[in-house]
Design a protein around this nucleic acid. Structure first.
Lengths: 346, 346
DNA sequence: TTGTAAGCGTTATCAC
DNA sequence: GTGATAACGCTTACAA
């Protein structure tokens, strides 16, 4: 069906910029300008070109454009995992903001592995992206080298390390631990335990633990950390933690879980064991996953600015690229706020 | 800091294939083959090239490669929304499978808008992707035209329409409605209501409703559909539905919700109103969202093959491209199974 | 197995 | 405001 077309090789025969230019009676570069700097094209030609573009159904070849300009309208993002409820909002906000301005999202997940992250970054760089967005500041040496040499904006999200070179958009995980501990202490709880994440590589969760530990110590209490088996799924790990902690005497009167999945597991295990929550034991999570308000009792948690991180990351990218206006210079340090959501479980 | 580099224009000065070739004492095409068809390069040269690549930290420019070959190692995927718990697994499975074979994921969300989908598809085509993956068979005329003319594999997921041209990977939403209705009827429920999705544009949810309606009618019952206000968030819409349905006399003895978010809202509203579930009213959802097993009572639901869809879509793409082996021809119709997960709520 | 030459479709540069 | 020309870095086609 295509065989009779006079195609020399490859994608030949497709509608290109030159096709449009010829039909519109202008040069190729004028059509190029029509798309990129419309102001520089006279209204009459603009109209004529628009007509031809519509007639032919011309779609600009962004690959060719990317090669010629050495900066594609594409932005790479590496996230620990796509399917977790926590990062999804960041991706969504990021992607939506970008696409509104004609940029596309190239996405990969690292599963908290710096090696997988490095692979993703290397692959992305091959597409000469306009910018690169990573999660946290934990990278391999190879990744560090690449982002140092890449001549594009690099943003680290979901964390806040002013001393680092890349742009920072996020919050302090240490402070999250501090907030949770202070909150429970303020409500009168005195035997406050912390349950770690079972997933290896989630270093940010360890920083939350450290914030908790430092705070309770400061308040004259002894840190009490439980680490579930590393091979357990979060929900199961939370159950295990609750069961184990409740055998202690005296048991804790409040537990901070490294995330809401763990907390939900703990909550349920506690209830099934006849525990009244929060009377017998308060529970606080992290993440404000969608189900937090659906549980009975609903789950108190600390809500990270997931969506805001995504939107702001995209905004900073677009500012850096000159797509969005910016006065003076693009803000490098962006500290956002986590909010403690007090619900029935505490 | 960069100014003294002898860059002529654009990205000039970077390490290219020619740089590697020169240093390794071979021609550029040999280095190209080293990456794409290593078998065709002699072992000695292979080793020499590997050394130079490592020394120089060369990263292939995929944009240039994509332009030259007219097929980039990139695959576009349009999903209704990224942050919903339901599609995230599909994305994850898709992305992971692709990246294992050196392909990258270009992602956009449509929010159930065919117009936004069309925009995404148009943008993707500009990157000359190796394949395109869409959700469901509901597209705009523009999208239909583009996918018909695009000379690449197109896959429709999360649905199953054998009569359509694109490859199908999914299941029948109508059948999901049938399954839910039959299941409840089989358990003895006789006043079975259905709660629609509040989100406009989710046509698949309407097919589930139709499956339910046809089935109850067949069983000699009257369909009973409640449509929440369109502007309500799913969780709130579920609450509204439960409250409204319970004022009927007699009220339903079982409710099928169009998805788990609605169901969770309904469950909670029922419990807060003193209803015993499932004794007073059974509840069944759709999606098997992560929280379904965390609720008390845990939520009976129908689990779609979300992850499998993603993995299989990637597999079919790679087969179509000849990356993965395939006997005879790539399977065009892929009907997967939804599983009814019976839990405490029914 | 290896190399030469041409071209992929666009944009940067410079001239008018 | 408009256009001619030369890149951009790689792969296809063909030849040796």
């Amino acid at each position: 069906m295509n065989e009779d077309k006079p195609r020399k090789r490859r994608g030949a025969g497709r509608v290109t910029l030159s096709t449009v230019a010829r039909q519109a009676g202008v040069s190729a570069i004028t059509v190029s300008r029509y798309f990129n700097q419309p102001d520089q094209v006279s209204p009459e030609r603009r109209e004529r070109i628009a007509q031809v573009v519509a007639d032919l159904g011309y779609v600009p070849n962004l690959v060719a454009g990317g090669l010629a300009s050495a900066r594609g309208k594409i932005v790479g993002m590496v996230i620990p995992n796509i399917s977790g409820p926590i990062f999804a909002n960041t991706i969504q906000g990021f992607s939506d903001t970008l696409s509104r301005h004609g940029y596309q999202l190239l996405l990969a997940s690292s599963y908290f592995s710096t090696e997988q992250e490095e692979n993703a970054v290397r692959a992305f760089l091959g597409w000469s992206p306009a910018a690169l967005v990573l999660t946290s500041h934990f990278h391999s040496a190879g990744t560090e080298k690449m982002i140092a040499e890449a001549d594009i904006p690099v943003i680290e999200t979901w964390d806040y390390r002013p001393e680092r070179e890349p742009m920072q958009i996020g919050f302090s995980h240490f402070e999250v631990g501090v907030t949770a501990a202070r909150y429970l202490h303020g409500k009168g709880y005195r035997r406050i335990a912390f349950v770690q994440n079972s997933a290896a590589g989630d270093f940010s969760a360890l920083e939350r633990r450290d914030g908790y530990a430092a705070t309770v110590r400061e308040l004259g209490l002894e840190p009490w950390v439980f680490a579930p088996d590393a091979d357990l799924a979060p929900f199961e790990a939370g159950k295990q933690a609750m069961q184990a902690l409740m055998t202690a005497s005296p048991p804790p009167d409040a537990i901070i879980f490294a995330n809401d999945n763990l907390a939900a597991g703990g909550l349920l295990a506690g209830q099934r064991a006849g525990l009244k929550i929060p009377e017998d034991c308060a529970v606080v999570g992290f993440g404000d996953y969608p189900f937090a308000e659906m549980l009975l009792p609903s789950l108190s948690t600390i809500k990270p600015p997931a969506l805001e991180i995504g939107v702001l990351a995209a905004t900073r990218v677009l500012e850096s690229l000159g797509v969005l206006p910016v006065e003076d210079e693009v803000q490098r340090l962006n500290l956002l706020e986590c909010r403690l959501i007090e619900r029935e479980s505490s």
